[in-house]
């Protein structure tokens, strides 16, 4: 059965494509946006907000 050998190659090919997609998008994102924007996420946003609403 030859089919399964093609399936193997297909799996390799798809893996490489998906990997490339992530790497390309990652590099493009890193060059488009500034580091401050990308790493601006802070923990506990929701808690701070609800708490301040309570104090209102």
């Amino acid at each position: 059965m030859q089919t399964w050998n093609y399936v193997e190659y297909l799996a390799w090919g798809l893996s490489i494509l998906l990997g490339l997609y992530m790497v390309v998008d990652w590099l493009r994102t890193d060059t488009t946006y500034s580091e401050e924007v990308l790493t601006s996420s802070r923990e506990g946003e929701l808690e701070a907000m609800t708490e301040e609403t309570f104090k209102g």
């Binding site: 401050e36 924007v37 990308l38 601006s40 996420s41 802070r42 506990g44 946003e45 929701l46 701070a48 907000m49 301040e52």
Partner: peptide
Amino acid sequence: GMGPHGTKVGLLR
């Protein structure tokens, strides 16, 4: 949506 600490890009709720 919520920025008391200055998050510009956060995880999505």
